[in-house]
């Protein structure tokens, strides 16, 4: 299968690989997917007092497109409010990376990962 240049770039030089302390109050963690399906994404966001995502990081088990999708969204969510980040659509991701139809599920997973991370952060700050 041929990969787009953008997928290759993110795959070769993944952005924001890493882990934040989950205990940290400002951190939201989203883990989606399943090993049995061939991809698991863990996306973490660090949110400041103004409710803006200051930093993001990821680790992904999955194919090149899954890695690229998660790498891309860590770049996209930075500087966004939770609502803005939550409105990122999988179709935007798929379009940016020129994913072929069989890889659309990777972008869906990345969207799910953002939402899961936001929900995790919000659940920590319910009071």
């Amino acid at each position: 299968m041929a990969y787009s240049d953008k997928v290759l770039d993110h795959y070769e030089n993944p952005r924001n690989v890493g882990t934040f302390e989950n205990e940290d109050d400002g951190v939201g963690t989203g883990m989606v997917g399943a090993p049995a399906c061939g991809d698991v994404m863990r996306l973490q966001i660090k949110v400041n007092d103004e409710g803006v995502i200051e930093d993001a990081c990821f680790k992904t088990y999955g194919c090149g497109s899954a890695i690229a999708s998660s790498s891309l969204v860590t770049e996209w969510v930075k500087g966004k409010s939770l609502d803005e980040a939550g409105s990122i659509k999988n179709s935007d991701i798929a379009e940016e990376l020129a994913l072929p139809p069989v890889k659309i599920h990777c972008s869906v997973l990345a969207e799910d990962a953002i939402k899961a991370a936001i929900n995790d952060y919000k659940s920590k700050h319910q009071d």
């Binding site: 690989v17 882990t19 997917g33 399943a34 049995a36 399906c37 994404m41 680790k59 088990y61």
Partner: peptide
């Protein structure tokens, strides 16, 4: 493996078969 959340979990001693995955 440095990119893999599963590797992290394995190294932290998590038994992956006991994790509730959100299958898709």
């Amino acid at each position: 493996r440095a990119l893999s959340p599963l590797w992290d979990m394995y190294k932290d001693g998590v038994d992956l078969s006991t994790v509730q995955w959100s299958a898709h």
